[in-house]
Structures are given as structure tokens and as C-alpha cells.
Design a binder for these strands. Structure first.
Lengths: 337, 337
DNA sequence: CTGAAAGCGCTTACAG
DNA sequence: CTGAAAGCGCTTACAG
């Protein structure tokens, strides 16, 4: 593999000129620059990553902590990982993926060996063990998700409270007076993941505020559990005509299947909103109105804030992205009976 | 962050002694070693990753190329990524995950900057563009999957041909004479992914050899497509009593749902085998006999062979792991009518 | 059993 | 506009 000396020799310049020509950190005569560029191309030169790291500038590597928990949903998980990697690449960063159960030891390892310039934490729970660690690590960090205590942290997430309110308001404005919510796997609530709680609490508060009868049930990812969940909602809310789905893709799909089996038509008999979904709801049958959870937006913003920390610095903050509702015809004004 | 000089000072030894005490590459007096270990612990010292890389020994980083294609199945994909990371960690390696569409540029980047010691290629297609690249890169590489031309490559995979034969043989031995195969998403066949073709071809060849009537249909991941697939098989094989599922988890689940709706009981009316599945089929309803596709085995073996290349060297080879059948009661001898 | 020193390949003040 | 040189933090022959 060619090194900077090879390039310098080929271009007939010193190694500092090569370095500056590549980094652009000082002005170079146009002809010199061209000669260097040609040599770089001819030798397929790329600066040695270790040497760059050692000089203490940038490693161009960031750590992505994405532990896989019980109840996590593979595709959604993957979507966030991909979103972080794509965002990182736009800043010329590569990503070291840490997934081991023992999340803190991996972070400690890559941070204290100065392997990475920064850290992205995914799937943050309310009392996440990683929070305390990154406080001590002194490595720039951005979280996707909001823990209970956010002091000194940079956090990005969809505004789940607003999303819940928007869901309820939309259905309430259409005249629905009994609204059900199918939630995530119970495991996810138990583990202290923050967004399901935030969504559920805001759902119930907003329903109360608007005088809506509301009921919530979690559901596991299997047909029996989904069927039981739907039946439980129907029992609690006999006149339910509005349904909010805050669960993963297979569960949403199963809910629609169960409604179909029960002869419940969408939106004639039931208005359905898919809330905070990181997949495309037009592939569902029928396509669902959706408040998207855009992995690329939240992760992109988190990566951007991380990059800002590396350069200019960033004040600690919690950024909540405003939810929007995209209609696909699965809600309608309530039929008067 | 403490460096090796800090540790040397704290332990009252030279930096070379610190280095050797940590690496164990030469014998050290027990008391000296203890002093060094204490200093390392006290200062929370970890060698600088860049400096290690620069010395040209090991970066302790490997690149995982896992492009996400149309038709890829999220959870299965994730399972393989996780399996590689877990295996890498057992060798004290971290993983840089490359997922961009432009797979070759990422590999070129991390390889020629000497960021990684080796490369794992996932989801290899028959004429994968990455193959030619890694041949020129001169970086140890192991593939999970088998391309059309395997010269000079180290490849690991489940033996899909044997798996197909084992599926057919098992059902044939039970007296089934008409056997259907539900395959992957058509996109996956079009893209030239190798294992679906290998499985399908071996399925048809083995059926022919045993005098079994066989039919194959691909299926997309939606209920309508699955229903159509099942009906097509039933039309082609009116006396079908054996069914092999070589498709992702949701599709397998939908097939079972459709069979249930059609009043077809498992295994009384239909013996079903889940082939090369990377998920747990006991959660299906009913649980299915399965030939597992153990991501941890194939990926673990690929990583192990990569590590061998880094030390002793490895002859190019194609290692096909033998399939096994795990019974869960979804097959039975054919009912004579 | 241990230490002094070279050198990995860069980046960046320092000089001109 | 360009070059010579220091130095980042290690590992590893070389010496003793």
C-alpha cells in the first residue's frame, strides 16, 4: 500500500505538501495540487487510518451502541442502525457497531482506546445504564431517545407525546368518542423503554382532556395475543370506532387481519391510525394513515448534533421532532347510527 | 486519558516493560507484572488504538459488508450481523459495519486506509461485485455464502443442496409422493442470490431422483401472495401431502394461517418442514420441524477462518456445514386413503 | 529479566 | 507557496 512518501516522491514535492494538498488546510499552487492529485490517483493512495488517529485529530469513526433487547423488533432496529450509518457517511464517518448485552464494556473499550470520536446511543431506556457511563467517558455523545434524567445530555427523538395527542385529536375531530390503543410487547414496557410509556401516558391524558373514552392494551407478536388484545378493547369500549396502533409491523398487520375476520371495515366501521411507525404503512391491507417515525430524521439529527459537538460544541438539549400525519384513507368521520 | 508513559511512571518501569507485561510477549518477573497491572487498573489505561494500528500489527477491527437488498428480510439480516459481531468479540475484534448500496467503495476505503485487518462478506450473490474487489484488495476475507466462482476464496455456508435433499428424503421416507416448495420473494431469485437457487435446484433434482411429484412457487411477504402460492401448489399437486417452506418467518407464519383457513391439519393432512430458517420455529403455530440455518455457526466459522488467515494462513476453500433436521411434530407418515 | 531507542505514517506548527 | 522536523503512542528488535 502506498504511503505519503510514495506520493510525495511521485509528485516531486514534500510530504507536508501532500498532506496539505489533500486536507486543503493551506493554499497550494494549482499546478502542485494537480501533480499531487495525479499521484494520489495513480498510486490509489489513502492516508493510513492509524496514523491519522494517532495524530490526535480525528478517527473518523463513531460508535453506535444498539443493544438488542428482548422484545426488540428486528426490522425497526435495523432501520435505525442503517439510518445512523447513512448519516455518518455523509460526514465521512464509519461506524463501529456495538450490540453485545454488556453494553457498557464495549463503550468503555472503544472510547478509552480513542478508537472513536463520538458515540450514538440507540434505544435508550428511562434509566439506561449507558447514561452514567457516557457522562464519565468525556467523549461526545448523542442519544436517540430520552432517558428520565437528561442533564448535560444531547437527545433527539420524535415527540411521542405530541404524536399521541395528534392521533387522539384527529380521531376526536372526526367524531369518534371511544378510542382504543394497541401498544407494544409488554416486555418493552417492563424494560423501561421510554417512548412507549410517553406515548401511552399522553394518549390517556389527551383522551381525558377531550372527554374521549380510552382503553389501552399491549400485545405480543402472535395471532393469539393480537386477537385477545382486540377483543379486550372491544369489551372495554363497546362503541369503539377509533383505533390507534402503536406497535410493530407484524402486529399491525395481524390487527388488520383480525378486524377483517370480525367483519369490521376500515374506515367505514373503524378509523385506524398507525402511530410512530418506522415502516411503510401503504403496504398494509388496507393502507393506514400514519404518523411516521422517520429513523433517518431522528438518527440523522442525532449524528448531526454529534458532529457539531466535535467541531463547534453544542449545548446539552432535548430535541423533539414534531410529528406529522400522513393520510392513506384509513380514517373517516364517524357514522351516525 | 492515561498513556503508556503514565503507566510506566506509576509502576516504576520502562514503557517496553509495560507493553510486554500487557501483551505477554516476553517473560516478566511476577512482582513487576503485578506492579504494572496495578498501575493499569489505577489509571484505567487502555492502549491507544491508533498507535497500535500504526505499528502495523493489528487494528483489531474487521469490516462487515452487509448490503441491504430489495427483498432482504430485516430480522434474518440482523441475526447474521449480530452473529458476526459476537464471533468477532470472542477474538477481541470490533466490527465496522458497511451497509451502503455502493458496497465496493466502502470496502475499498476501509481496506486501503488499513483500518481493518480483515473483511467478512455477507449475503453474497452469484456474481457479486464485491468478489472482484476483494481479490485485488489483498486483505484477508471470508464470505458467508458461495458465489459462482470461488477460486482463491474462503467461503462458508450451510449446505443448501444437502438441506433440500434432506427435506425431500424425510418426506419421501414418510410416504409422501407429492411435495410442494414455497420459496423466497421472487426479487431474491432475480437478484442472483445464490442459496435460493441452490436449494430449489437440489429440491427438484432430488424429487426427480426419488420419483416424487414436485412443484415450486416463490412468494412475497403478504397474505394475498401467500394465498396465491398455496393455491398454485394445490392446483399443480392435487394430492400434495408434503410441504417445504424455504421462506422468511412472516411468510411461513402466513402459510400456516392459510392452511388453517383451508381446514388442512398439520401433520394429519399435511407434513410441513421449515427449511434453512434462521429463526425459532417452535413459536409458529403449530411448531414446525426445521432444518436450522444457524447464523451463529456459519458466521462464527467465517470469522474463525478469517482469524486463521491473519495468523497461520488458510488455504482457499468452500466449507459447507451439514444440515440437520430438528423435529417438532409437524411431519408424519402419509395417511393411506 | 529489563531498558533505551527506532520507527510505524501521518499532521502541523515553525521557518523561509 | 513550500519544506524540514517534531511528535502523536505504541511495539519490537537490539543490548545488556
Amino acid at each position: 500500500m502506498a504511503n505519503i512518501h510514495d506520493v510525495a516522491r511521485a509528485a516531486g514535492v514534500s510530504i507536508s505538501t501532500v498532506s496539505y494538498a489533500i486536507s486543503g488546510k493551506r493554499s497550494i499552487a494549482a499546478t502542485t495540487r494537480r501533480r499531487v492529485e495525479e499521484a494520489v490517483l495513480a498510486l490509489d493512495y489513502r492516508p493510513n487510518a492509524g496514523a491519522r488517529m494517532l495524530k490526535g485529530t480525528r478517527t473518523n469513526l463513531l460508535a453506535l451502541s444498539a443493544p438488542l433487547h428482548a422484545g426488540s423488533h428486528g426490522p425497526a432496529h435495523m432501520a435505525f442502525v442503517l439510518a445512523v450509518i447513512n448519516a455518518a457517511r455523509t460526514f465521512d464517518y464509519d461506524v463501529v457497531l456495538l450490540t453485545q448485552d454488556d453494553a457498557t464494556s464495549g463503550l468503555r473499550r472503544v472510547a478509552s482506546s480513542a478508537l472513536v470520536d463520538g458515540i450514538i446511543l440507540l434505544d435508550v431506556s428511562q434509566d439506561d445504564e449507558r447514561i452514567e457511563l457516557v457522562r464519565t467517558l468525556n467523549v461526545p455523545t448523542a442519544l436517540v431517545g430520552v432517558p428520565r434524567v437528561t442533564d448535560e445530555l444531547v437527545c433527539v427523538d420524535l415527540d411521542f407525546e405530541r404524536a399521541a395527542e395528534l392521533s387522539v385529536q384527529t380521531l376526536a375531530a372526526q367524531g369518534h368518542t371511544q378510542i382504543g390503543l394497541v401498544g407494544q410487547d409488554p416486555l418493552i414496557y417492563e424494560r423501561g423503554s421510554n417512548f412507549p410509556h410517553r406515548f401511552r401516558a399522553a394518549f390517556e391524558a389527551e383522551a381525558l382532556r377531550l372527554g374521549i373514552d380510552a382503553a389501552f392494551v399491549p400485545s405480543r407478536e402472535n395471532t393469539a395475543s393480537v386477537r385477545a388484545a382486540v377483543d379486550e378493547l372491544a369489551a372495554e369500549l363497546p362503541a369503539m370506532t377509533g383505533l390507534i396502533l402503536h406497535c410493530n409491523e407484524p402486529v399491525q398487520s395481524m390487527v388488520l387481519e383480525v378486524l377483517d375476520q370480525r367483519g369490521i371495515r376500515i374506515p367505514a366501521d373503524m378509523s385506524v391510525i398507525s402511530a410512530c411507525s418506522s415502516f411503510d404503512t401503504v403496504h398494509l391491507n388496507p393502507p393506514l394513515d400514519v404518523i411516521p417515525l422517520p429513523a433517518s430524521d431522528t438518527c440523522g439529527r442525532a449524528v448531526a448534533l454529534l458532529m457539531e459537538q466535535l467541531s463547534t460544541g453544542v449545548e446539552p438539549r432535548v430535541e423533539l421532532l414534531p410529528p406529522t400525519l400522513v393520510e392513506h384513507g384509513s380514517t373517516a368521520a364517524r357514522q351516525r347510527v
